[in-house]
Structures are given as C-alpha cells and as structure tokens.
C-alpha cells in the first residue's frame, strides 16, 4: 500500500467520523426532551415549581432548541461537551475516567472469545460427527438465547453466593498507570473480580463466533483448492491449519471486528449487574438521572469508538487479504 493511499484513507475516515459524531450529537440533542426533566433529579420533591423554573432558567434549559444546540456545538468544537449534572465535572472527563474499566472488561471478554472460539470452531468443523461437537453446538444454542443479565445473575448466584469462590461485585484493587489509567489487570484481586463479568460478557458472542468459524471452515474444506491439496497428498495438519484456516479467518476478521464493537453495547447490562465502574454502567445511571450532558457525551464517544474499530478492522483486513484494495483508496 502506498503512503499517499494510506493518508487519504485515514483522512476520509476522519471526515466520516466527524459526520457520524455530528449526526449523533444532533439526534442525542433532539431526543433529550423525551428523556425526562433533569431538574427533578436535582432537587427535592417538595421544591416549588417556581424555584425549579428559576433553576432551569439559570441552566439555560428554557432556551429554544436551536439556541441550546448551537451553544453546545460552539463548546463542543473546543472539546467541551458540557458538565455532568451528577458528577459536577466535564462529562468527557467523567467518561474517560471510566474508559479503562470498560476497555479492560471488553479486552478480557475478547480474549476469552478468541481463545475459545477458534479452537472449538475448527474442531467442530473438522469433526462434525464427534460427540464433543454435539455438546458444543447444543451449549452454544443455549448460550446464544440466554440474555447477558440472566447469565450474569446466575453466575453471581452460583459462584459468589453458593460456592463463595468469586467476588459478587465491583472491580477490586486497581493500580494507577501513567495517564491516569486505572488497571485491574495487574493485581490478583483485580483479575479475580474480572473473571465473572468477562465470562458473562463473552457468553453472548462466543457461541456466535464458534458457529461462524465452524461454518466458514466447513465451507472452505469443501472448496476446490482444499480438495486439490488433499489430492496432492499434503499432510492433514498443513491443509487444516495453514491452507484452510487462513481463508476461514478472512471473513471472520471483518465480521468479528464489528461484533467486538457491539460488545461495548452489551457492557451496559454486564456492568450494571456487576456494579462494574465502567462507561456502560455510567450511561445507564445517566439515563436514570436524566444527566443529559453525560448521555450525549457517552454516545459521541461510543460513536467514535465504533468508527475507530471499523477503521482498524479494514486495515487488518487489507493486511490479511492482499487481494482486497483499501476502501476509499481509489481503484
């Protein structure tokens, strides 16, 4: 790939990201009226309507939509997405503070997904009639149909309450790394706390990935070039793990990258059940409290994460499959 192509690719993606975030902010802003009245969450129940209205005035909530939105945009281009009502700090700072917790949870879940789905997918494709395959497929059907929060609650009940092996909530001890990154990966207690949430989070995607890899692998095993390889007398291992696997992984990467992005959406439920102090939990709380600046900041940040993951996926895709030209690099 040429350097010029690469730069133009990144530029296009940058512009796309800006458009996405602009649209998200507009949508977020226009639905905020339907989320409820933030004042109700800020004052006691017996406070008079006049008093509430005075406060609304001071916060600029009585201004017309257009005035409020342009004020928001004006601040947003300077990197200020407003102050969270509840945390009383810039919404972006609050979210970035919680980002490490969510990132580590998603990373752990991703590692579990990759670590299990690749071997299981391959095994079940190569041995379609084995009893292990039947079990894996049956379990994965169950796994795919149970909602994350149910899996999470069951896991807590069995492993924390009944067996007492696992902590029931929270993130445990963390270590502060440079740039304020709070990591739970570096303490035993932190890792211990990570086990249940990351398994619960991975439970929704794992069956999907096993089935995806299995399906692709079986298809590849039927293809001409694999038959030719058999005919040529190559070893089983070489055919399965080099020739077939490589081509299996190409579609898995492109679809998988997108799916890993949607894991972020599932963190909302997982984090809430485990009281995991991450962005997803923060978001649900913000919705409950009608903390509008925080809600809008969250969806903008998550929108950005989606654009970035998709860009990375496209890049990796080009590396794995040289026959594909970079999207947007021209022909």
């Amino acid at each position: 790939m040429k350097a010029a192509d690469f730069i133009s690719f990144l530029l296009r993606r940058g512009v796309q990201a800006l458009v996405v975030m602009f649209v998200i902010s507009l949508i977020g802003f226009s639905i905020q009226g339907n989320l409820g009245d933030p004042l109700r969450e800020l004052v006691g129940q017996s406070v008079s309507e006049a008093e509430r209205n005075a406060l609304r005035d001071r916060m600029g909530l009585n201004d017309p939509f257009f005035v409020q939105y342009s004020r928001f945009l004006g601040n947003a281009v300077q990197g200020d997405l407003g102050n969270s009502y509840f945390f009383k700090r810039p919404a972006l700072d609050v979210i970035l503070d919680k980002f490490p917790a969510t990132f580590e949870l998603v990373l752990a879940a991703t590692l579990i997904i990759i670590g299990l789905s690749v071997p299981l997918g391959i095994y079940t494709a190569i041995n379609p009639h084995s009893w292990i395959t039947s079990i894996v497929m049956a379990v994965s059907i169950v796994g795919i149909s149970i909602p994350v929060f149910l899996t999470a609650i069951f896991a807590i009940y069995i492993f924390s309450v009944q067996l007492g092996w696992m902590p029931s909530f929270g993130r445990g001890d963390t270590v502060e790394l440079p740039w304020g990154w709070d990591s739970g990966f570096l303490t035993l207690d932190g890792l211990h706390h990570l086990i249940l949430p990351s398994i619960a989070l991975s439970s929704i995607m794992l069956p999907l990935f096993i089935r995806l890899i299995r399906g692709e692998m079986m298809e590849v095993l039927q293809s001409e070039y694999v038959r030719f390889a058999w005919a040529k007398g190559l070893s089983k291992r070489r055919i399965w793990y080099v020739h077939a696997l490589k081509n299996t992984l190409i579609p898995v990467i492109s679809l998988g990258g997108v799916k890993i992005g949607t894991l972020i959406a599932y963190t909302i439920l997982t984090e809430t059940v485990f009281q995991w102090p991450g962005m997803g939990f923060l978001f649900l709380e913000a919705v409950n409290r009608v903390d509008t600046p925080l809600i809008i900041a969250y969806i903008i940040v998550v929108g950005l994460i989606f654009v970035v993951t998709n860009t990375l996926v496209d890049l990796i895709y080009t590396l794995v499959n040289p026959t594909v030209k970079m999207v947007g690099s021209g022909s």
Binding site: I156, S160, F169, T272, V273, Q275, F281
Partner: peptide, 18 residues
Amino acid sequence: FTPIKEAPTRVAALLSGD
C-alpha cells in the same frame, strides 16, 4: 460505602459476605 444499583447484586453481595 459502595453503591450497588441492582437489587439482586446487592443482595448477593450481602449473602456472599462481600
């Protein structure tokens, strides 16, 4: 003091001794 929003988790935390 830890806030635990979800009632089942709060109860589990007590039952498990956390």
